[in-house]
Design a binder for these strands. Structure first.
Lengths: 373, 373
DNA sequence: TTGTACGCGTTATCAA
DNA sequence: TTGATAACGCGTACAA
């Protein structure tokens, strides 16, 4: 049905092996035969059969990217950055016909099962690399299953990169997940300083004079959620403010868990207000939640930041255009994605210790101000 | 290195062919052997070799999705919806081990060359389907090359779906693009009523009493840009307002072309103000551009909508949280993506005429109001 | 520098 | 209902 290597070889008067060598550029080929082959390729409009070459070479041109939801700009920006490094015109030499990788984007919806399912699917595709983005569930059982899958992928030659996620060995209970077999080197990880960023953000509110601060946390038992919440409480504890001691009724009362979506922010803000009418500030798990909270507070007749301050996290593109411009913490999503992409291709050296933490910078804007006297 | 079909067959005491049949479920297999095979699969942790089966079956489990930029929520939302239909747990029967498709997301950056490059790459992968999202350049040469590539994909059994894009035969000059060969059926297309939406939006401003309305258009020569601009001007012309006649100096003066990004909105708004200080309203090509415009206008000391009205297009999630909430036109991005995904899998019947136009509804919010008397 | 020959792991055809 | 067996198209030792 379609043109094959053999057809090109016949047309160019060489063997199929030679055509393959020209196309892959891995072996020396005489200049004259090379151009003859390329002309034949052009004339026949030959297109390599990806599956066939993947089968023979035991590796494909596909890079898996796991995200919670590609519609969420947090992941969209990272995925875009990853893609910019692995796809055509990443910034390699122009028109190299070989080594054009493509990204398979996998929406896990934050579900551990789906995460595992997708990793199996990527194993099946003999993916060249896999990038796991964002935080994950802290369930030891899941972490164990995850580690097993990743080890298997790496055993098959798939590079694994964690982008915005802790290395698997850093389980909350300090124990290495999974059985204590020889696990080889841990996957390289790029993490965000969620703890530090959250601590500085809440510190900023404390500096402004706030003392009754509500927190809209993300889904419980997820790394990102916990790190941000821990940072928040560390700042409170250091200042001796309410809610700084985990486990105390006061801490529980000022914390509402929800999703990372706008509706959770809306509902959560109302709940916080019900629990503590004297609230002067609300810190949200991310920008999207913060905007939902703003909407709820405004509907309650509260002005931001006049009556109540609100802060987000991530500094997504829309944060600056919110009403008022959102005080938040900037995460280098693009840089992280780009580095993850290069690491996935082996085009960048893994950092010492195989883990790097990227900074999280406080962005003070207009949604925070001193509390009313 | 890894477990193969033959290994499973040996363990289960059957032939490789039988194992294949069990796994694909296409042929009748006795219940007892079936369970024996499945047990062997489990025990050996067998994972199908995707490339091998793609080679043998001459089609892969991959679906290509072309987007301008996955970091832009316009495309992120569509991609997410497409993905929800083709990936695991789309909404098929749970745990079907076969037919798990995966999406390859291709960032074209709006570049025609990259679009073609990616289509070639997808041809190489023997993709099961390809979804092209968003508008495209209206250059006849590009359209011709595009049509050729798509025809070739379809000839190879790849389903092609256009999502948010006109069918290729509807070239602006009315001529069918490409040579007049037998082109088979045109790809199925889902389009947005950009023209009608834009007409209603500008009509809304006219109804409010605005007469000097500036327009921040997207990149020239792109379908989406032109349709929205045409709709805008049609409304103006119908009302006898300034700038309604294309080609007139007045129309040119009140239109600024830029990108679909925030910076273009910022710069464009300032330029419009320079050209026409008496402006009472600005209509932007999309929500992102509108937010950039808002920022610029506010910095100029203008209040929205008190001093000047601003409107966007698309109704992306953040539009409602803008300052003030943005009047815009809602495009059913999610629905379009979901339908495109089902069409790509052949799980939904193609519409009569192979093209459907989805509605674009006016969303009046707080960023538009009557002009100052 | 080039050609030969075999293997990669599945699917599909044809018998049984 | 199941089993041989021949493709599928390319990469790569090995030989020349």
């Amino acid at each position: 049905m379609s043109v094959t290597l053999a057809d090109v070889a016949a047309r160019a008067g060489v063997s199929a092996a030679t055509v393959s060598r020209v196309l892959n550029g891995n072996y020396p080929v005489a200049g004259s035969t090379r151009s003859r082959v390329l002309r034949a390729v052009d004339e026949l409009e030959y297109v390599v059969n990806g599956p066939a070459s993947a089968l023979a070479a035991a590796t494909s041109d596909l890079v898996g990217v796991l995200v919670n939801d590609i519609a969420d700009p947090f992941f969209g920006v990272m995925a875009s950055a990853i893609q910019s490094q692995i796809g055509p015109d990443g910034d390699h030499d122009a028109e190299a016909p070989h080594g054009q990788k493509m990204a398979i984007i996998c929406n896990t919806g934050g579900s551990p099962e789906r995460e595992l399912t997708y990793l199996t699917l990527l194993l099946r595709q003999r993916a060249a690399a896999v990038v796991l983005t964002g935080g994950t569930v802290e369930d030891p059982e899941h972490l164990g299953a995850l580690a097993t899958r990743l080890r298997r992928l790496e055993a098959g030659g798939t590079r694994v990169v964690l982008c915005g996620r802790q290395p698997l060995t850093a389980a909350p209970d300090g124990a290495a997940p999974g059985p204590e077999e020889d696990q080889g080197p841990a996957p390289v990880a790029l993490t965000f300083d969620n703890f530090g960023g959250a601590r500085r953000l809440t510190g900023h509110l404390l500096d402004l004079g706030h003392r009754r601060i509500g927190y809209l946390a993300g889904p419980a038992a997820r790394t990102t959620t916990r790190q941000r919440l821990d940072g928040h409480r560390a700042a409170l504890a250091a200042a001796g403010a309410a809610g700084g001691e985990p486990g105390t009724p006061e801490a529980e009362r000022l914390t509402v868990h929800g999703g990372y979506d706008r509706a959770s922010g809306y509902d959560g803000a109302l709940e916080l207000l019900r629990r503590e009418p004297g609230l002067t500030a609300v810190v949200a798990a991310n920008d999207t939640v913060a905007l939902g909270a703003c909407a709820a507070l405004r509907e309650r007749g509260l002005r931001i930041p006049g009556d109540i301050s609100v802060a987000g996290f991530d500094d997504l593109p829309f944060a600056i255009d919110a009403a008022p411009a959102l005080t938040t913490v900037r995460i280098p999503l693009h840089e992280a994605g780009a580095r993850a992409g290069r690491l996935a291709l082996g085009r960048e050296e893994a950092p010492a210790g195989r883990t790097t933490t990227l900074p999280a910078d406080l962005m003070v804007r207009a949604s925070t101000a001193p509390p009313r006297p």
